[in-house]
Amino acid sequence: MGSRVLAQLLDRGEKVRVISHNPDKLSKHALEQCEVIAGSLDNVDDLKRGFQGAKSVF
């Protein structure tokens, strides 16, 4: 589901930041068009870094 939402956001020209435990597994499309934060959803500091300045979070 997340990859479909990501694709729709990118197709609309939205600026997207992704927090990924393993950025190597992201699609080439995502790596080229997203700001990628290597981190864990279990790490508060990673989340703060990823959410900083965000208008919305999914």
Rank of each mutant, 00 (worst) to 15 (best):
29 H>C: 10
45 D>E: 13
25 K>M: 10
37 I>R: 00
23 P>Q: 08
26 L>M: 06
22 N>M: 11
15 K>L: 13
1 M>T: 11
31 L>G: 04
34 C>R: 04
57 V>M: 10
19 I>E: 08
55 K>M: 14
13 G>R: 07
37 I>D: 03
42 D>Q: 15
14 E>V: 10
27 S>H: 03
22 N>C: 11
30 A>G: 03
13 G>V: 01
34 C>A: 04
1 M>H: 14
34 C>D: 03
39 G>D: 03
23 P>M: 04
24 D>M: 09
25 K>H: 10
41 L>G: 15
31 L>W: 09
22 N>D: 12
24 D>Y: 07
20 S>N: 00
30 A>M: 07
32 E>A: 10
4 R>D: 13
43 N>Q: 02
11 D>T: 01
15 K>R: 14
55 K>F: 15
53 G>L: 00
50 G>Q: 03
13 G>K: 05
6 L>E: 00
36 V>S: 02
30 A>E: 01
17 R>E: 03
7 A>I: 00
25 K>S: 09
10 L>N: 00
13 G>C: 04
35 E>S: 06
47 L>M: 05
49 R>N: 01
49 R>I: 10
36 V>T: 06
40 S>K: 03
18 V>F: 02
54 A>R: 11
39 G>L: 06
43 N>E: 04
40 S>H: 08
51 F>M: 01
41 L>S: 13
9 L>I: 02
44 V>P: 14
52 Q>Y: 13
28 K>S: 12
7 A>R: 00
35 E>L: 05
55 K>P: 07
41 L>P: 14
48 K>V: 15
16 V>P: 08
2 G>Y: 12
45 D>Q: 12
36 V>G: 00
36 V>M: 07
8 Q>F: 13
54 A>F: 06
16 V>Q: 01
55 K>N: 11
20 S>A: 04
18 V>I: 04
36 V>K: 02
4 R>L: 14
16 V>M: 07
24 D>L: 05
37 I>C: 02
24 D>G: 01
43 N>V: 10
35 E>G: 01
16 V>I: 11
4 R>M: 13
10 L>V: 06
44 V>D: 14
39 G>F: 00
29 H>S: 12
48 K>N: 14
1 M>D: 13
42 D>R: 13
19 I>P: 04
3 S>F: 14
7 A>S: 09
41 L>A: 15
46 D>A: 02
38 A>Y: 08
7 A>N: 08
47 L>T: 00
8 Q>P: 12
42 D>H: 12
39 G>W: 06
56 S>H: 11
20 S>E: 01
28 K>R: 15
46 D>V: 04
13 G>N: 09
46 D>R: 08
7 A>G: 08
24 D>P: 05
20 S>L: 06
30 A>D: 08
43 N>H: 09
35 E>V: 03
21 H>F: 15
44 V>A: 15
7 A>Y: 03
12 R>V: 07
1 M>S: 12
10 L>E: 05
49 R>V: 11
58 F>L: 11
43 N>Y: 08
45 D>H: 11
29 H>M: 12
34 C>V: 09
17 R>S: 05
22 N>W: 13
9 L>E: 03
39 G>H: 05
28 K>Q: 12
56 S>G: 10
19 I>V: 01
58 F>Q: 05
39 G>E: 09
16 V>F: 11
53 G>H: 00
53 G>N: 09
